[in-house]
Write a protein that binds this DNA or RNA. Sequence first.
DNA 1: TAGCAGTCAATATC
DNA 2: GATATTGACTGCTA
Length: 575
Amino acid sequence: MVTMRDRDIQRLEQEVRRLQRLLQEVQERSANHVALLQQQLANKSQHIERLQAKLQSQQDYEKIKTELRSLRTLMQTTDDVSTEVKTPEFHPSVGKEEVLNESSSSSSSSLSLQSFIKEECDSGGDDDGCEFDTTRLAQQVKEALQRLNIGQRVFGHYVLGLSQGTVSDILARPKPWSKLTSRGKEPFLRMKHFLSDEHSIRTLSVIQERLRGILVPCVRPPDVNSDDVIRKILDQSRLQMLDGDDDDDGGSDGDASDNVIRNILQQAKHEMQTPATNDTCDAPVRQEEEDYGTLEPSVQSPVDFVQSIIQKVKCELDEDSEPSVSPCSISRSFQTLPADPDQRAQVFSRSEENTETRERPRSCPTAVSSSFELQSLDLDTFSITQRVKETLMINNIGQRVFGEEVLGLTQSSVSELLSHPKPWTKLSLKGKENFVRMHLWLQDPQKKPRVILSPQERETLMAAYQTEPYPSPYTVERLAAQLGLQTSTVSNWFYNHRSRIRRDGFSEPLQTRTFQNPAASRPVSDSLVRIKQEPSDGDTEEDADLQREQHSHVSVGVQSVMSVKREKTEDLSDL
DNA sequence: TAGCAGTCAATATC
DNA sequence: GATATTGACTGCTA
């Protein structure tokens, strides 16, 4: 009996131990499972955090979408401007309103320039009825640009289709409407239209902001020039290097640029491929493709828009990221020499006066021979240096001047370069640039330099103008000889001077002012000259009108247009 | 053909 | 970097 009970107890004890083990195993499994779940939870939490961060970073999606639309609009309209701006006369029916205002496709409230002009003119019944206060208009535009922090360059390019300098000129000295030709009226119509179209203003503001943000504006229409030639050569060289070897100090720049381009490309592609926004974009940018080449395989419309962005960004990044490669100086005055040795010496001596303030020559588009044959990338550096040395010697040009003006190098560097030229294949990208510059400089010796008149020369011309505003050919020749200038330079100066005096008379604001000599940006003693205002009996009606206007606007200044015209009339009378 | 209006773009200036 | 100046040019007109 006792034995049976002991056996039962023993069995029960075994059972308890088994259950305890089982319990322990379950507990361990549960703990592991809990740990696993906790780990998964942590992972999920991290994932959620990442997603939230991503969501946060993409909150400007709508804004970017809007900007891309704006950019697309401008891509289209810029092409329109670049072609239509060459139209010599303004034809309201032709619709240059494409500039910026074509955004009406997304803004039904936008007025077209055509309808705008019609509305403005309807009150008068014909063109004469369009009477704008150009001074006020210019002032309003200046204020708007200032308020929105929009530069004249961007405004001129996208809205007016004009260069920055012209915009500056028009805004600073607007002619009265009645004195403008139909061509001259066009920028003012555009300004008026721009001011009246909130969408255009907003779009331009966005673009300016965008350009200032990540890109450098490339507002000048692309053209074929020496810079392009060198750029192509160097690009080709870089491509070869990337394919062949890694001896390229410019490679990192290129990679960085391409990464940025790729990012924008992806963003733009995504934008364009989204069904909701995949509207038609039937403006292929063939011209830009030709100008800049393509980064990606060609794509069909509507992704042509993407292509246009690539080209634009490529252009902008190229200009921004490769300053050392940018072939800046080729077209500057020292790139080429006048045919006449005396003039060459004069050009260099004149420019030498200013070399202290000059840095590496800047970019300037000047056409060079399109048959330029440097694409072979196999320049004879020894021959080039020999020819450069000979040219410098013949023209008595110092290495210092040549280095500063053509290569952007010091005299010692020029000396080293000319004395010990490396073979082309051993040169780095930057080293090749110097030889390309020298080669172009040698290739195009007939190009005229930009003349910069000295204060003394201006003074002489001004004095001559005082006595003879319409100089005879003999006087022009005499002045040219006296100053060592070309006769065309003297003639141009007189044309320009008369033109600007007239313009300044027109554009003068109502208050009395001191009339500045065009040369007055320099401290020239004769910048203030008393103006003649008394009318002349022999004046025509137009002259009288001109005089009234002048009389009401100008009290002191350079010799007036009335006296100029009067003298001309007197000359004719004498004849 | 001279002169002009309008403009570009290199350069100066701020 | 943005703006102003100015020599040179184009296209038009008388």
